[in-house]
Write a protein that binds this DNA or RNA. Structure first.
Lengths: 138, 138
DNA sequence: TTACTTGCAAACCCTTTGCACCAGT
DNA sequence: ACTGGTGCAAAGGGTTTGCAAGTAA
């Protein structure tokens, strides 16, 4: 039984078989599944689960801060359950595979070999997210 | 006449009215247009231009390294012609508006007030892009 | 001339939605 | 019982594609 399920129950999240299965599928390190992959794995355990419910649940987990969305250019979003340990992402531009990384020094210049997982690194991108002045009050 | 058009011609890129218009629309600082916006502005100058051509041309400019794609979670990609001066992005999670920023110290902790454009900043995300071992030879 | 580019419309992928039914608490 | 979650199927936004006709070099 996953920590995540416990935590969510503690927060008063209404627990259902579908939500439990989605939460359980999203467990572990270096887990970065697309919604489709989550659906496939969830279906293996609970055949009646629907695509809509998977999307609903993923969206809620993201809002609750339990799961992080990772966007790779032009591909389906991936969902990363490792939201409580700060880390960054290393993305393959070819196949979209993602690894979690923990850069040591200046993220713009250093990604230690030990954190490259055999990837070549050709680009580093930093994105700050927040609210612009016009949207600040919303 | 834009520098970009000159540079592309110099690289042997076959020049057409459509491509010139797209390249000219993508000129300036803090320009981060969606494909749709590029189409709208291009159409204003060249009414017969098609959506497909705009997408083709944007894709080529990205491949040529003249334009950078910026992806905001769940929104249309935006195209940034400022590919030759290194910079990072500040994205409004609400409306998707983007500003170019130049962080000073450690990107993970510091975004100077002078670089915030009145935005609040709630999240910093670093993404490394490259090829995974399986895709390295492609 | 000839290979490359364009326009059109349909196809595509991923995600969201409307609504009637069902189920935790 | 009440509130909120689920499944289905259809719609939606953004992007890509196949192919015939057009055009830069």
């Amino acid at each position: 039984m996953s920590d995540l399920v416990e935590r969510l129950r503690g927060r008063g999240w209404r627990m259902t078989a579908q939500r439990r299965v989605v939460a359980e599928v999203l467990t572990g390190d270096h887990v970065h599944l697309t919604a489709d992959e989550v659906l496939a794995r969830a279906t293996a355990r609970l055949p009646e689960i629907s695509r809509a419910t998977v999307y609903n649940t993923l969206g809620e987990l993201v809002s609750l801060g339990e799961v992080v969305e990772v966007t790779a250019h032009g591909r389906a979003k991936r969902y990363d359950p490792n939201a409580h340990r700060p880390h960054q992402h290393l993305v393959c531009s070819e196949c979209g595979t993602i690894r979690d990384v923990h850069p040591g020094g200046d993220p713009l210049t250093d990604l230690p070999d030990s954190e490259r997982f055999g990837y070549t690194v050709s680009e580093v991108e930093v994105t700050y997210r927040g609210h612009c002045p016009d949207c600040a009050g919303l």
